[in-house]
Nucleic acid binder design. Sequence first.
RNA 1: GUGCCCGUAGCUCAACUGGAUAGAGCAACGGCCUUCUAAGCCGUAGGUUACAGGUUCGAUUCCUGUCGGGUGCGCCA
Length: 603
Amino acid sequence: MLSRRLFQKAVAAGTMPFLLPIVPDPGRKERMTIQQLISSRVQAALAAAGAPDAPAVVQPSGKPEFGDFQANGVMGAAKALKTNPRALAQTVVDKLDLAGIAEKIEIAGPGFINIHLAPEFLAQRLQAALADDALGIRKPAAQKVMVEYSSPNLAKEMHVGHLRSTIIGDAIARVLAFIGHDVTRCNHVGDWGTQFGMLVAYLVETRQSGDAELELADLENFYRKSKIRFDEDPLFADTARQYVVKLQGGDPDVLALWAQFVDVSMHHCQAVYDKLGVGLDRTAVRGESAYNADLPVVVSDLRAAGLLVEDQGAQVVFLPEFKNPEGEPQAMIIQKKDGGYLYATTDLAAIRYRHRQLGLTRVVYVVDARQSLHFQQLFTLSRKAGFAPADMQLEHVAFGTMMGEDGKPFKTRSGDTVKLVELLDEAIERAYALVSEKNSGLPEDTRRGIAKAVGIGAVKYADLSKNRTSDYIFNWDTMLSFEGNTAPYLQYAYTRVQSVFRKAGEFDRCAAIMIAEPAEKQLALLLAQFDEVIESVAATCQPHQLCGYLFNLAQQFSRFYEACPILAAEGDVRVSRLQLAALTARTLKAGLSLLGIDVLDEM
RNA sequence: GUGCCCGUAGCUCAACUGGAUAGAGCAACGGCCUUCUAAGCCGUAGGUUACAGGUUCGAUUCCUGUCGGGUGCGCCA
């Protein structure tokens, strides 16, 4: 059972509890990140100094004058041992073996240990990354992971409310796959339930009048009209309800109509996914309807486990872990009094399936923060019912609402929801106008291509670069700016490197890296930390860490670019700087690609 | 009413989950292009981290309370 403290931390991180630590396969020799390497050495030194249980607390230094990494664990250890922290720090440093790694180790302040890396060590790390297609990214023991994301309701067209899940989920899936996990993408679309009875009933009507094809072309309108019919005509509403029953009972005629509607709606979604460039297609779709046959089984399983009771005609489970407004155990409705099922039932069936049929060990739900309580209840009940074993990680990766510039949920001027496809088209158009303004000499085709990468990249990056747990303010001008922490700035930094290579000619791709200038050292240090960032993003599902890193990297490259001439340098220095530039380009490209953002050779 | 989230520079956001003097970017002001894309770089200014207590060698981070904002809380998803 999780302690309250861990629970709070998990909530603060936007991940739900029930996480278990990722235990690396001990039989597998793994490459450690620099931070892990130093941490293990400091740990050993602490143990040798008489504090085997004290955490080393190694992290990148806050400022360059504090070295490259700092170990902060001594103060806490000294407290526990009731000794002088400076004296203990000296003992730890005396026993600290960083031969070949650090060139200088200092004690500062109350007992900080500041570690300056040896340039040769850094160079060697970068050399290894250059020689590796995956840039030296460590491969932990692969897990079977599912990322559930996007999951629109097929009754309507995709709108901006689906953007964050789609973008964030895609980035998380890419990162997890990159470090070697077996990742399944799942689009848990809403394709079942009461609304579909109404839609099928309306489809029948429009078919009779002969303009079904035309009506279906605008799903939003189709939904609106059928809703009006449902609300205004009791006969129609009755028919709609009958269709729901027939649908869930497997009536072939109604199922065929339903399938036609779902097919049209999925085509709309696919157009958005293709435009957005996220890895979703029909193979990722496993909607709510897929669990229809399992729903009665879930009910009987819960009943067999003694968890289910009848209350006011409905089948419910009471969870003492959660309190309702009256302070009594919170009820979770599994089956309505009319026999119908709810989304909790479907989600339970999905977890059951994912454990029993798919054997997943981690499931990441990229869903709006407002469903937080639902997931807490869902996960709790899944454990109790035996649908998910204790070592299966279930995480709600929550995110906030997308706001307009007025701080209210993003809408059109008239107050309607914004269709996603229209938002993306506008992004591309705006980017096209910008590119044409900045670089009118390029052929139109080229500008169109740049506009797509820049426009879509800007929308994605604006979202991904903010901590997902809070609401974020959508602003065209900020995201499409070529200055600051934006996708265009990063894409531009990449084109600058590419431009250097176009002029560099052939050079030795195995040449040695030599780190002499401060700007080279700072760039090298950042490049050597790529693996740490990726691991952290994979563990916390917080892509904004990667964005922050890439922005730092692009900025540091620009400083290096100003301070250290590349092409004008000679001999070993020239090749060394080309190597640094090459690794920077590959790291930027790989990092942006993990965010789902394309790079360009010129812009 | 109660659960959860949030409150950091004028604005948009960080702060590696308890570490050193709270950092970036916009916007403002001042420098740097006969030299690899100036869509860039360097610098200046901007803060009682909502408020009040507490724990700690150390708190934006943990605890308690207050104020403000968001969101959820039995037959929708």
